[in-house]
Amino acid sequence: MTDTLFEPLTVGAVTVPNRVFMAPLTRNRARAEDDAPYDIHVEYYRQRAGAGLIITEATQITPEGKGYAWTPGIYSDAQIEGWGAVTDAVHAAGGRIALQLWHVGRISHTSLQPDGQKPVAPSAIAADAKTFDGEGFVATSEPRALETDEIPRLVEDFRRAARNAIEAGFDLVEVHAANGYLIDQFLRDGANQRTDAYGGSVENRVRLLREVLAAVTEEIGADRVGVRLSPFSNANAISDSDPMATFTAAVDVVAEAGLAYLHMVEGQTGGSRELDGGNSIDALRKRFPGVYVANNGYDRDLAIETVEAGRADAIAFGVPFIANPDLPTRLERNAPMNAADKDTFYGGGREGYTDYPTLAESA
């Protein structure tokens, strides 16, 4: 009998061959001159086409949305063309692929911004966080608060990025509203101290999420859109006085939008799955009627058990996919895993990127 983890699943407009999803993984290898993916990305993603769904590395929707050196974009012709070669290769190998749409907000540095400008954020509050500027890890720059009349432009940036993603051949897009980046900054009262329609009450703080999802779903269809949230993570120095109330409202917005899937980081990003008293992933998950993708610290046994029990429809794996391009096969066969080389996670070329062997190659 096949474990449900390895069976097909319908996710909005697409049917995927298994429920082992590849989580978004920033690898800092875009072409330096234009932030476009190129031939090494084609090979990297093609190797991982056995995933039920590949969710790409976070991809900035505008130059202003960039927060790290050598991360790809989806706003220029060269970037659309580069991603088109990736999606062609993944589809030719039988895979399905979603593009993660990203605006980092305050998690940036003036050296990465157009004309050296300040990064933008809901409020002019610096994050106690670091970013990678191409030389090393540096403290993020103090941001400026977005003006109220700038927000429609920001929403249109997400809309255009979704349209560009479909033009580039992606099956789905995922709106990045997690891990302390721009939409998450609007959601949380630790970063959002606005006094206009986008700040203060929970209803106001979820407004940007609602408007972005409305624009993106109107542009490409709700059945091609997912979203990522990290309700209880403090990644990138983000905080909230009542995350359960905030994310109950946020998940309700996602449910109302009728999205293809909800993808949640359960606990601390890349860390503990333990939650403080009163906080509950399960309670949030039950508010969303669509496909639920769980993420954070899953191994084979926990993934099989969670899907079998109906607590998630699919599991997104991060680091294991870096070192194991054929991860679903290895999980299904309970085969040994390659170890990931952390020294090659960020930046560089093919080493630690496209040179990890499959089971067949190891044999």
Results as ranks from 00 to 15, higher is better:
58 A>N: 10
329 T>A: 13
156 E>S: 12
335 A>Q: 05
318 G>A: 13
59 T>S: 12
22 M>C: 08
190 G>R: 00
228 R>K: 14
128 D>F: 04
90 V>N: 12
156 E>Q: 14
227 V>D: 07
157 D>G: 14
39 D>C: 00
269 T>Q: 14
26 T>R: 00
114 P>G: 04
220 I>F: 02
173 V>H: 02
29 R>K: 04
232 F>Y: 15
125 I>W: 11
292 Y>K: 12
103 H>C: 04
197 A>Y: 00
44 Y>S: 13
201 S>Q: 04
214 A>D: 14
273 R>P: 09
280 S>C: 09
136 G>P: 12
236 N>K: 11
238 I>P: 02
52 G>Q: 10
359 L>M: 11
338 N>E: 10
104 V>T: 15
261 Y>A: 12
302 L>E: 12
102 W>V: 07
195 T>M: 02
346 Y>G: 05
292 Y>T: 15
191 A>F: 02
145 A>G: 13
263 H>M: 08
361 E>P: 10
81 E>Q: 15
58 A>L: 08
119 P>I: 09
31 R>V: 13
273 R>C: 01
251 V>T: 14
119 P>S: 06
112 L>C: 02
222 A>Q: 05
23 A>S: 15
245 A>D: 13
186 F>L: 08
258 G>D: 05
121 A>I: 12
187 L>H: 13
209 L>R: 07
170 F>G: 06
118 K>R: 14
284 L>M: 11
202 V>Q: 05
273 R>S: 13
